[in-house]
Amino acid sequence: MSNPANPWTADLDLLVGAARLAGARALDFFRKGPEVWWKNGGHSPVSAADFAANDILKKELLSARPNYGWLSEETDDDAGRLDCETVFVIDPIDGTRAFIAGKDIWCVSAAVVHRGRPVAGVLFAPSLDELFTAAADGVALKNGEPIHVTEPDASRSTRMAIPEDMTQDLHRGLSGGVHRISHVPSLAYRLAMVADGRIDATLVKRNAHDWDLAAADLILSRAGGALVTLDGEALLYNRPTVSHETLAAAGLSRLSGLVDASRHLAGH
């Protein structure tokens, strides 16, 4: 429900409705062998479900906010977005490989970015019936209930979902070492797992894109955490270049230690 004290809650409501529609459409294809194409030199799959969900999101969102810019993984980029203060940043299915394989961890990622930072964000995982939401200055919610990052606990290791080749030297840099969680196929969902406390932290390999990150970035920040560069800087979105360098995500009380322990992984 919109909150007059926070102008971005109306946009959040819009994102939620569109994401639910797009997620329902994607489910029509799930585990039914959708047609698949390969892009980026054959390294990145895209399915008929991605395009169908993207079409719904674009129609629902731009019809309601025609003055907003548009950036989506499954739409040819339009440099006109750079002239817009406010932009929709969309990944119709984050975790397409998992989707194609019939695995449940994939989600619709939808954000509103204003002057370079996300101000409304939604992650909807329809196969899991999970909805993560946040608006600027609001509370991060999962299925309507507040979520929060974990606090440091000296009695146990840091639970991290990271690629195996990024665990190098982290055991020595982090108090208590690292307990590596198995691969999470959706990057946006992995960041949501930090936000709701199922894991303590994660690292993001270079070349993640705005659409992978923007919604989850806001949800994590409203849950008491942050997604930053290995220089400790917040991310800016809707730039000419939409990819990012190696990143770190954790609760604020863990973040400086994680960044310090991870700087040698810059460029991964």
Rank of each mutant, 00 (worst) to 15 (best):
M1L: 15
N3H: 15
N3S: 14
L12G: 03
L12P: 01
D13H: 09
L14K: 08
L14S: 06
L14Y: 01
L15T: 01
A18V: 07
A19P: 10
R20P: 01
A22W: 05
A22S: 13
R25G: 07
R31G: 05
K32Y: 08
E35L: 10
V36P: 00
H43M: 12
A48W: 03
A48N: 06
D50Q: 13
A52E: 03
D55S: 14
D55L: 14
I56W: 03
I56M: 10
L57G: 00
L57C: 09
L61K: 03
L62K: 04
L62S: 02
L62I: 04
S63Y: 08
S72T: 03
D76C: 09
D76K: 15
D78Y: 05
L82Q: 01
D83P: 01
C84S: 12
T86G: 11
V87T: 11
F88H: 08
F88P: 05
I90G: 04
D91C: 04
P92K: 12
D104G: 04
V108G: 06
A110T: 11
V112T: 02
V113D: 00
V113Q: 02
R115S: 13
P118Y: 01
F124N: 13
P126K: 04
P126I: 06
S127R: 09
L128K: 11
T133M: 08
T133A: 13
A135F: 05
D137K: 12
G138W: 07
G138P: 08
K142L: 15
K142H: 10
P146L: 14
I147K: 03
H148K: 13
T150G: 10
R156K: 04
S157H: 04
T158P: 09
R159C: 03
M160A: 05
I162Q: 02
E164P: 10
T167V: 13
Q168V: 14
H171V: 15
G173R: 09
S175A: 15
G177H: 07
R180G: 04
S182K: 15
H183T: 13
P185F: 00
Y189I: 05
Y189S: 06
Y189R: 05
L191Y: 02
V194R: 00
G197Q: 04
R198Q: 09
I199M: 05
T202D: 08
T202I: 07
L203K: 04
V204Y: 02
R206M: 08
R206L: 09
A208G: 06
H209M: 13
A216M: 02
A216K: 01
L218N: 08
I219W: 01
I219R: 00
S221D: 13
A223T: 00
G224F: 06
G225S: 06
G225A: 06
G225I: 02
L227V: 06
L230D: 04
G232V: 00
A234S: 14
S243F: 12
L247R: 00
L247M: 07
A250Q: 02
L255D: 02
D260E: 15
S262L: 01
